[in-house]
Simulated assay, not measured.
Amino acid sequence: MTVQADIFGEWRGQVLAVRSGRWRPERDRAFWHAQAARYDAGQPELPNTVAWLRGRLAGADSLLDVGAGTGRLTLPLADAAARVTALDHSPDMLAVLRGKGPPAHLEVRCQELADALHDPGLPPHDAVLAAWSLAYLPDLRAALTGLLRLARRDLFLLEDDGLGSPHVTLRRTLAGQPRPQRATGLRRALHALGLPHEHLQLTETRELTFPDTAALLAQARLPLPDAEVLDILGPYLTPHLTSGGEGWRYRWAFDVHVLRVRGEGA
């Protein structure tokens, strides 16, 4: 019981300490209102993650994507199930999804997750996917147990432990900001709930290109001399020619943590 109190209390404390206050639904909706139009352009593709999920969805009749947003994962997985529900509380993000012309068997549902978990109008699905969707929910216990009630066969949780781009990782280190350990927190929570699960790390890659050194340094925003920044990022950089001269190709690998919990009907 002590372990349970620790992880769920820690998670709640970390969420409520976020300065942006995004644990308040209205604050989070305002954030996505500002981000929706440019969200997709700033996100890497996840081909290895999509391929792995597609393989595990074989034979699933229905899929619920919680925190579906613009359909980053919902749309490439949509043909893996006969019925798909994209759930999100941001009307702006879902508007982008609708603008992509989703298939007829995909239902778009705008609703708070906390409400959806107790809504009899949302039936259980064979598979439930929550990809980076629980970060600002203070009550992690209620979220996980509610999602499991909706998952007949599989619950897939996707997260990371804050190891993103090399420049952001270094920026956090220099600022003395600990990286969020959300994937580890989710694993601890599942253990606390006594839920056996499969855990794996899928490697994806991200690449950015810059027309010149000034653009690269502006992206990095590191409080260090330019030469030192270039030296630190050197292992991830490749010079390449652009119309204006010599630019940079900036490429790194990152891990997606996948937690798979089998439902009662599995």
Rank of each mutant, 00 (worst) to 15 (best):
Q181H: 11
V128M: 05
I232G: 00
R72M: 06
L147V: 06
G101F: 06
H118P: 01
W11E: 03
A151S: 13
S62F: 09
S243G: 15
A82E: 15
L77G: 00
W11R: 07
G55H: 10
H118G: 11
V15D: 02
Q43V: 14
G42C: 12
V96I: 12
C110L: 09
L241G: 08
F156L: 10
P124Y: 06
A214G: 05
E10Q: 14
E45R: 15
L217H: 01
G121Q: 10
E246H: 14
D79Q: 14
F210D: 02
S165G: 07
T238H: 09
M93K: 01
G69E: 08
P47G: 00
Y136W: 15
Q201C: 13
P196A: 12
R260N: 06
G42Q: 13
R187M: 14
T213A: 06
L97Q: 00
D161F: 09
D160E: 13
C110H: 04
L16Y: 04
Q35F: 12
V18D: 14
M1H: 11
P120Y: 13
L94S: 01
M1I: 07
D212L: 10
V15M: 07
R182L: 15
P166H: 09
A143G: 04
A214V: 10
R19F: 07
E207M: 10
S20A: 15
R260A: 10
D126F: 08
F210R: 03
D115F: 07
W11K: 04
T213I: 03
T213G: 01
G234L: 15
S165W: 07
Y136S: 08
Q43P: 03
F210H: 11
S90A: 13
E207V: 07
D231C: 08
D154Y: 12
V128T: 00
G194V: 08
P76L: 08
A189I: 05
